[in-house]
């Protein structure tokens, strides 16, 4: 049926008799492949031009001293040498990995817990689920500003007001070099939570109930069911979320930038992630070559982390 349609469409092209002659000699399979690739060519071309070409261009740029106004000069690995000697880079590197190493497991743990229990709640289930999902729909910039005001010192910060009410000393939050990064991380976790909960719940629903019934008949406890059935069967979902949220944390920008606009990545660079450093190098100092080198480093980190996670969490056969 499908192939009939395809042949009909191909043969029905106006003035296509001459061209259709050799095409008629092609097998059905080849013809179908031609069609598929014909359509795929558009996105492939699109991606080549706007994704792959700039990516390779960035590798080249990272070896130049291009500053946007003067012609680029090839400088070899000078940008990389400069980068690895820069204490600011190592600080930013540490910040980025703090976001990743604490942010990802913490957000997944919370998301799984919420999904696990929400899955059993029948009362206003959809409404509660919507509430969890709502932050994910909100613009990161707007959200960051609301949180920025929450974190303010007295007399206007809501969180500090609450702390004062219950007799806990006031905290500087985003005005402190120790607390600022975690204060921002909390908002990022909160913002991404809804998405992770939804995905986890879809994963939970996909596990056949017969498995649970069989386990209960065999007399397995809740904890054992969780460990032996739920978690192993949830693995594809978990792998997806680990990779997805790791990339998100490695690329964190909106929250940090909007919560610290006047002193971006501050105080004293304590919240600055790699992406913000790239942005500042490129569009603040206009050191495009140096920024490209940082981009290549970020690309490499993303690649290694993602491959590593896929390898660790791979299906063991």
């Amino acid at each position: 049926m499908e192939s009939d349609n395809l042949r009909g469409a191909a043969g029905g092209r106006p003035g296509g008799t001459a061209a259709a002659m050799p095409a008629d000699r092609l097998s059905m399979r080849t013809k179908r492949l031609l069609w598929v690739w014909g359509f795929l060519a558009i996105p492939v071309l699109f991606y080549t031009v706007i994704r792959f070409y700039p990516t390779f261009q960035a590798f080249y740029l990272s070896m130049t001293n291009w500053d946007l106004v003067r012609p680029a000069k090839f400088v070899g690995f000078a940008n990389y040498v400069k980068l690895f000697k820069d204490p600011q880079f190592w600080k930013v590197f540490r910040n980025t990995f703090t976001y990743l190493i604490i942010g990802t497991p913490l957000s997944l743990l919370i998301a799984f817990t919420v999904a696990f229990f929400l899955d059993r709640v029948r009362f206003m289930h959809n409404f509660i689920r919507a509430l969890y999902f709502l932050p994910y729909l909100t613009t990161a910039a707007a959200m960051a500003w609301v949180w920025r005001w929450f974190y303010q010192p007295p007399p206007i910060g809501v969180i500090n007001d609450v702390l004062a009410l219950i007799g806990i000393p006031q905290q500087p939050f985003i005005r402190s070099t120790d607390q600022a990064l975690f204060s921002i991380m909390v908002t990022a976790i909160w913002a991404g939570l809804g998405f992770q909960v939804i995905i986890f719940m879809a994963g939970l629903r996909a596990i056949p109930t017969t498995f649970y019934e069989a386990a209960r008949i065999d007399g397995l406890g809740e904890w054992a069911i969780l460990r032996k059935i739920t978690l192993p069967l949830l693995k594809p979902t978990t792998v997806f979320l680990v990779v997805f949220s790791s990339i998100a944390f490695l690329r964190i920008f909106d929250q940090v930038y909007n919560m610290t606009t006047n002193d971006p990545g501050g105080p004293l660079g304590s919240t600055k992630p790699l992406v913000l450093m790239i942005y500042q190098t490129a569009f603040g100092s206009y050191a495009m070559g140096y920024a490209a080198a940082q981009t290549v480093v970020l690309f490499t980190i993303l690649l290694i982390v993602s491959l590593l996670q896929l390898w660790i969490l791979r299906e063991k056969k």
Binding site: R175, S176, T177, D263, G266, P267, L268, G269, Q280, G284, S285
Partner: peptide, 20 residues
């Protein structure tokens, strides 16, 4: 020479005294 950088430098100078 680098307006943003020089501004940031002054901000950090005061923050080092006040925060650290």
């Amino acid at each position: 020479k680098d307006e943003l950088g020089q501004r940031q430098n002054a901000i950090d100078m005061v923050n080092r005294v006040l925060l650290e």
